[in-house]
Design a protein around this nucleic acid. Structure first.
Lengths: 357, 357
DNA sequence: TTGTATGCGTTATCAT
DNA sequence: ATGATAACGCATACAA
């Protein structure tokens, strides 16, 4: 009694078809064999419901057609979108994707890299935060939003241009004094360039600005405090705010509501990412849209590219601006423009992040 | 010259340590060996940076510690949440997860099942729509939200109870005449029970109701038409609406806004799923919350359970109600209650799904 | 206790 | 063109 419940193997097919093992392999791999043989083999395959074992295949070929994706989670819309598009790009090429949610945990990141390498993946795509991640040289790695050394290509959107675009847009929309709000890791990464781009845009348009940058652990209430401090006689001293992400913009909008500031009449908001409700509907706010499908395709393309010398160290893909109701331009679709000042009131009911300090 | 760039193998470690292959295997697998040997092997492993090849391991053991997850996409919040929690549950058990986004495409679903089986996964968890999916008996399969035969366990939330809970909640909140709105596949699946539960709840509370059910291809504008037809002299004839998902609720709220109906003053809305903005903030609307982490854990637990006879055919996990601003109860956190009627006005700017017919 | 040999399912190199 | 056989990296039964 050898392996009862196990799936049929090539050997079984060969026996069933009355041919040699090698012949079956050839049929399976599309290598020409005599028609009569091919037909016999194909019948046996159908009869036994034979499926090739890609593990054995990978063992032999030292190639597994599998790629690991490391990402903090799949719930934040930007990550969710990346996961989806990378998955699609890989599956299009008949590659499988191993998903590793890291929860921003450095040790988990390291652990999953080890796991991926044990699994002999053909490559890893990672949006990681561990500042000193150990990656075996032999495993191709593509970093998202973070440069990790010249031998590891980084794919990102044009964060600098996005920041600049936000500043210029606010200027075009008539803003006179604006603010930049950022929260994020202290780690050096590409999204940090949004700040420099924004400053550059403000300077080139002669737009005065202030910045409030809080670090990772700090509560969002710091922003609430900052904004409250800039209200004099009921008026906010900014007429435009650029938030480093849509998620932050969402929080800020709620805060402004509490502070009785109308968006976009009193203050216009631009976010970053291009987040949409329910994946494919409206933008959360006016925003700088990251080209997620193109970023995904670029990651996969770079990772699977044979010519390792042709891998550029940093690829910045172009961003676009999208109207999302929190700015004052004429409605681009010609619909009656609605007052936007009460948006998101809904959301205050359990706004933990905004609770009083 | 044999394999230049390839990773070191057990054989390399054995040579380096000056011991036999089997000894290395034992050290790696924690089988006791003499201390002096163990130390030599461990040193060699460190020196060569050896990683076990889990493909070869799987080939031998006929067990791959890998599970495939089939899901339409990772962008819709409910799916994103499922993917995240299933991923976590699997990784906790040192299992890897192969993600397959199917885009609701029956042929892709079938294709990915074949791919997963070729990969000799230890099991498959699937939220699928293909009515006649061919699944090899030998591969354990757990279905989410859909019963696919007695040998395939189905994990779902208590959709019937959820529907009933929605009806009872609306009754408790003072509604007199309510509506149920549904869009969805014609496929028989568990979420369809929300309708029956809702009807049951209405009947038990003596609440009169109407239903509008559209099928898959139909545009959401059908709902707009339905609602518009139920406005007489500026008043909607419903004072409560139960939407089969939060995504639908979101659309309906926008429609009601266009129709000058205030939510929740004129009409209260309850959705289904427990969707939150940006993954961990506020609920999109008042909603019946699915216990996603528990569902994920249950899927993984059932899938990996050895005792195949102890697998129940259908597991319904309890849902809860959460306030999300679109109903009229007192604010549960004691914050000042805000007028909700202008929520989501923001979103009308590119509401493709709501465009005029 | 340690080493050796065989087999897992596949591919590829050889004779035939 | 087809069939036998070795090798991929690992685990294990068995011999030493």
């Amino acid at each position: 009694m050898k392996k009862e419940n196990s799936s049929p193997t090539m050997k079984d097919v060969a026996r069933e078809a009355g041919v040699a093992l090698g012949t079956v392999s050839k049929v399976v791999n599309g290598i020409p064999v005599g028609d009569s043989y091919r037909i016999k083999v194909e019948e046996a395959i159908r009869k036994l419901n034979y499926q090739i074992n890609s593990y054995a295949q990978g063992l032999k070929a030292n190639k597994t057609h599998t790629v690991a994706l490391l990402i903090p989670n799949t719930q934040e819309p930007f990550y969710a979108s990346l996961v989806y598009h990378i998955n699609i790009s890989l599956l299009k090429r008949k590659y499988r994707m191993l998903l590793c949610s890291t929860d921003y945990d450095s040790s988990q990141e390291q652990e999953y890299i080890a796991m991926a390498q044990q699994n002999k993946v053909d490559g890893i795509i990672g949006l990681t935060y561990n500042p000193n991640l150990a990656i075996e040289e032999s495993t191709p790695f593509i970093a998202i939003d973070r440069t990790m050394g010249s031998h590891i290509p980084c794919v990102t959107s044009d964060n600098f241009a996005g920041g600049q675009m936000a500043a210029e847009k606010l200027a075009d929309l008539g803003c006179k004094h604006v603010a930049f709000l950022r929260t994020g890791s202290s780690l050096t990464n590409e999204p940090n360039k949004r700040k420099a781009g924004f400053e550059n845009g403000c300077l080139s348009r002669g737009l005065s600005y202030e910045m409030k940058i809080i670090s990772d652990g700090d509560p969002y209430s710091e922003f609430e405090k900052f904004l409250a401090e800039h209200i004099h006689e009921g008026r906010l001293s900014f007429d435009g705010i650029f938030c480093v992400t849509d998620a932050l913009a969402y929080s800020v909008i709620k805060t402004l509501q509490k502070l009785n500031q109308k968006v976009p009449e009193d203050v216009q908001i631009i976010g970053f990412d291009g987040t949409r409700h329910f994946g494919n509907k409206d933008y959360t706010c006016s925003t700088i849209v990251q080209p997620v499908p193109e970023m995904a395709e670029m990651c996969v393309d770079l990772l699977l590219r044979e010519n390792t010398s042709a891998k550029p160290p940093l690829v910045c893909l172009p961003v676009t601006y999208a109207y999302g109701g929190t700015t004052l331009e004429g409605n681009p679709e010609g619909k009656p423009s609605l007052p936007m000042h009460d948006i998101h009131k809904l959301a205050t009911h359990n706004g933990k992040t905004m609770e009083r300090t």
